[in-house]
Simulated assay, not measured.
Amino acid sequence: MEGITLSTEAATLSPIALFLQADIVVKGVMVGLLLASIWTWTMIVGFSIKLRRAMRDSDEFERDFWKAQDIDKFYEGAGRADQPAAKVFAAGVQEWRRSTARGAIDRDGTRQRLATVLASATAGEVDRLADRLNSLATIGSVAPFVGLFGTVWGIMRSFTSIAAAQNSSLAVVAPGIAEALFATAIGLFAAIPAVIAYNRFSHGVNRLEGKLNRFSDGFHATLSRELELDR
C-alpha cells in the first residue's frame, strides 16, 4: 500500500499534473513562460547561425578585398554581396564615385564624407544584425518576475485552501505550493538561457562591429592615399 501511495503522489507532482491542477491564472503564467522559452530557443538557434555566417562571410570578403588589385573591378565582381563587410565597402565606393566625379576634387571634404558614410554603413549593418536581440534581454529580465507572480498567486491559493478547509496539513497546502514553485521553475527555465544568450550574442556583435570598423578604417586609408595621387 505504501508503494502505491508514493507512486500516486509522484504522479500528482508530475509537470503535466501540476499544470492541469493549477488555477487558471497560474496556467496562464505557465503557458506564457513556455511560449517565451520556445521563442528564446528559436532566437538562440537562429541568431547563432546568423552571427556565425556574418563573421565567416566578413572574413572571406576582407581577405579577398586586400588581395584585389583594382577596387572598381572588385566592386563589380564581389562588392554587391548581401553581407555586412560588402555593404560597408559598397557604401564607401558609391560615395567615392560621387565625390570624385567632378573635375575639381575637395580632398578634405571627400575624406570627411567617406568617414561619415563608412561609419554610418557600419552602424546600420550592426543594427540590422542585432535586430530583435533585445527580446532576449526582455525575456531574461521579465520572466523571473512573471514566474514570481505565479508563485505568489499559488501561495495565496494555498492559504485560501487552508482557510476553507480549516486544516493546515501538508495535503491541503502542497498542491498550491507545488504549482507555485513549478511556475517559478518555468520562469527560470526561460530566463537563464535568455540572459546567457544575450550576453554571448552581444559580445559577438561587438566583435563584428570592431571588425567592420577596422575594415572601414583600412578602406578609408586606401581611398585617402588615392586622393594624394595626381588626378
Rank of each mutant, 00 (worst) to 15 (best):
R231F: 08
R52T: 11
F61Y: 10
I49H: 10
T222K: 15
E60D: 09
T100G: 09
R52C: 06
G77K: 15
A185Q: 01
K27F: 01
R107E: 14
A143I: 10
A190M: 03
S169G: 15
I4P: 00
T151N: 09
D106I: 06
R207V: 09
P175H: 01
G77A: 15
A68D: 09
E76M: 12
M30D: 07
R113W: 01
S99D: 05
G79S: 08
H220N: 12
G77L: 15
N134G: 07
P84M: 08
F145G: 07
G28Y: 07
A143P: 12
T100F: 03
G176C: 12
F89Y: 11
Y198C: 05
F89K: 09
L148I: 04
V205H: 11
L33V: 09
T184C: 00
S141E: 09
F215P: 02
S48L: 05
M30W: 08
F74D: 06
V172L: 02
W66T: 07
N213C: 02
N134Q: 04
V117Y: 03
L13T: 01
G3M: 11
Q21V: 01
S7G: 08
H203C: 03
D59P: 01
A115F: 01
K211E: 14
I16P: 02
D230H: 13
I186A: 07
A11Q: 12
D70Y: 06
Q83H: 07
A90H: 15
G150W: 04
F47G: 01
T8L: 14
I71K: 12
G109A: 12
I192W: 04
A164F: 00
Q69E: 10
N167Y: 03
D82R: 08
R111G: 15
